[in-house]
Write a protein that binds this DNA or RNA. Structure first.
Length: 99
DNA sequence: CGCTTGACACCGT
DNA sequence: AACGGTGCCAAGC
């Protein structure tokens, strides 16, 4: 299992209507490679399989998507999933953590 | 084998 | 509160 595979695997485990952060993902992997996590999602080979748009920054900001630092699509998708976004930041109550 | 880059995080100013 | 510099880890060249 590659690092990227682990990352994608965790992404798949995120329930619908919830989001997670790069930090949480890295923590779940028992590593501090926050950036490597994002790097892994940069190329999302399994678009629908891995909902990478549910991964946001630890401070609640959307971060990037599809290789772009800012993609309104991402925030829009999240809102469509039922997640509330305020001030370009995801409401912390929607953040999901792996146990 | 070593340097640079990147969908980040943290701390100081 | 906003900006910038520094640290982190994995991949690519």
């Amino acid at each position: 299992m590659n690092f990227n595979q682990k990352v994608w695997n965790l992404c798949k485990k995120i329930p619908v209507g919830r989001v997670s952060t790069y930090k949480i993902l890295a923590k779940s992997l028992r590593t501090k490679a926050y950036r490597a996590v994002g790097n892994a999602l940069r190329d999302n080979p399994h678009a629908p399989l891995v909902p990478c748009h549910r991964i946001i920054n630890s401070d609640g900001t959307i971060g990037g998507y599809k290789g772009k630092k800012n993609s309104k699509e991402k925030s829009r998708l999240l809102k469509k999933e039922g997640i509330k976004i305020v001030n370009k930041k995801v409401d912390p109550r929607f953040i999901f953590s792996f146990s």
